[in-house]
Design a protein around this nucleic acid. Structure first.
Lengths: 200, 200
DNA sequence: ACACCAACATACCAATCGGTATGTAATGCC
DNA sequence: GGCATTACATACCGATTGGTATGTTGGTGT
């Protein structure tokens, strides 16, 4: 039998299947049984790699949700020459998001809304990611402000908080409306708001 | 025994207990057993008034979540003399929201995020409420625009969509941060955005 | 080659879930 | 005042849940 064992890959497959299931059903409604069917594994395998469903969920938060958000929405701004212009460009690019993603919503936002009030461990980890995102926006605004691109009276920290909030708000509302059009219209308004922070 | 029967009151008590439980746990995680303990009733009573948990949830959406949102966030704008000023005032008043409400988030937004992708009946009813809210904002903007208070180039429909989205985004983010301060800062930014739609 | 441990598979368990069938008491109608 | 119907209470059920105890097999160091 060519049953090669690769524990790291197995763990990764579990994480990916879990991320998908959690994205679709939410964490609490996510079924371990579904994840097992999807991966073709058994309970023995899963509980060998993760001590409990909660630990699995926290690993998904850190290693999937967090990592993906960093590489998609944080990294592009880190070393941009004109940070705020890069933000506007980034928001514009998001309007090409595919329909299923809009229907299911932002994984970070979904988990925050579901888990924050009921589990402190989830909340603190999700908050770490959220804070990182807000800090990146704040830093981008501040750098552009020092470069004279953003108006001096702008409160960078508050604006960054608002941008993150409005961003997640747009995805959340579009998710309910199941409307790509609404999503684009809303993100376009957000884009205008950010542009309004620029001089002239 | 003074066991007076009042079916309407009983039904209302079930709805109120259910709204509370759903607000705390979400719909799917909401426990019928908890609702029964809270009301002091039994399964027979609950399933006499509501054929299923889902029907109970839908009734909570229509009769509790929807009604409360209308009287708190829609009615104050309907016949305001200066609609946009009333909006700014309304947003300002929300900053006095108590801590528990911020921790648990907006019931409408919570249910949208949880239920929209997994149940079409919930989604359509929640969407009705959401559309009513957006329409009210749009109408307020348009009326103020015709009165010459709002700038002519403002796209009222898109702006209304953005305001609703940002509003729910603020409550959602503040819920995760568990921070009254962040909530106020965020809503204050939203207030500034709405003010920026005014002339001068 | 043998031992040992990690990497799985199988079988089972208690608890909780929403839902139902049945019983009983209060209320409104004639 | 009997009688039907509404308004509940009690007891029970199958399904699903996350979790565990116990096996079995593959890789690895010596």
């Amino acid at each position: 039998m060519d049953t090669t064992r690769d524990p790291d890959l197995t763990r990764q497959r579990i994480l990916e299947a879990s991320a998908k299931e959690i994205h679709r059903q939410g964490f609490q409604a996510a079924s371990i049984a579904n994840i097992l069917v999807d991966t073709g594994l058994t309970k023995g395998a899963l509980y060998h790699h993760f001590p409990s469903k909660k630990d699995l969920g926290l690993a998904v938060v850190d290693e999937m949700v967090g990592v993906r958000l960093i590489e998609r929405n944080i990294a592009p701004l880190r070393e941009a020459a004109h940070p705020v212009l890069a933000m506007i460009d980034l928001i514009g690019r998001k309007q090409a998001q595919d329909e299923e993603y809009i229907r299911l919503g932002c994984p970070l936002n979904n988990l925050m809304q579901e888990m924050s009030p009921v589990d402190e461990d989830f909340r603190s980890r999700l908050n770490r990611i959220l804070a990182m995102w807000q800090d990146t926006f704040e830093d981008a605004l501040r750098r552009s402000q020092m470069a004279g691109e953003v108006r001096g009276e702008v409160n960078c920290r508050a604006a960054a908080l608002f941008i993150v909030s409005a961003w997640e708000g747009c995805t959340g509302i579009a998710k309910n409306m199941q409307s790509v059009e609404s999503y684009r219209a809303c993100m376009s308004q957000l884009q205008s708001y950010v542009a309004s922070l620029l001089k002239n």
